[in-house]
Design a protein around this nucleic acid. Structure first.
Lengths: 125, 125
DNA sequence: GGAGCATATACGTGTCAAGGCATATTAAGG
DNA sequence: CCTTAATATGCCTTGACACGTATATGCTCC
């Protein structure tokens, strides 16, 4: 269970991570929302904690788990090499950029298919 | 072996994908560069092909494998939800952007630490 | 069409991790 | 203290998958 990749291969763990995006949660809250048995939750949280995906603080009998960014950023970094590749594929980059800034999708009803070449992200000055 | 995540959990498969970023390769070339037995390569390629990560064309006795972008873009899309999160963490977003365009890193000796606030992704309207 | 190279598949085996269930730990509160 | 709630851990079973070795398929060229 070394790598970041193996950790997120497990669907329940991904579900937990997605849950924690909004805010920190206790084990019991996770258990209820995801409808999984408590030992399962605890075990997955252990894995996530040891891999650095989450951290916990104690609040009386309960433990509050929150996300930590580093491992997912590492994953993001791994993806970088492929972004170069798929930006070579025509306007796949554009779709990617659209996903990047998910502000205002409705603002431009521009047709993707017939769209002119977009300005590529400029090399940072 | 459903999900994108399970596919890339395997180190050898990731190695193959990384190899194919530069250009298409035959099975034999992959075999030699990664120093893995031929059946292993073929099996992993099968998995990758069925999951849509690669496609192959026939060139006489050899088959040339090349990358397909979609599954990795799907992974990228999954990461999106977390980008919002870690952009809440101070200037992690900035590091992310720096990673996005990996052209010319040496050109700007700008100090990251003392840099001014970057424009954040706006909350969806 | 037979030899030889390139790639794919079949089968048997070992490992490892997820899940279920029971139980241990720790804290709180009366 | 004793009980109850919240969480963690241990053990066992089961299934999936990666690997090695052997073999099959397919193409080329003579």
């Amino acid at each position: 269970m070394e790598s970041v990749f193996e950790i997120i291969a497990e669907p329940n763990r991904r579900a937990i991570l997605s849950l924690l995006v909004s805010s920190e949660q206790s084990v019991g809250e996770i258990e209820r929302q995801l409808r999984m048995p408590q030992p399962t939750v605890s075990k997955h949280l252990r894995v996530l904690r040891e891999a650095g995906f989450v951290e916990s603080t104690v609040d009386a009998q309960r433990r509050l788990y929150r996300l930590k960014p580093e491992p997912l950023q590492e994953l993001d970094a791994w993806l970088t090499q492929f972004r170069r590749f798929w930006s070579a594929h025509v306007d796949a980059l554009e779709r990617h950029l659209d996903r990047m800034d998910q502000s205002m999708e409705r603002a431009t009803p521009t047709k993707r298919k017939t769209r002119m070449k977009t300005t590529r992200p400029k090399p940072r000055t």
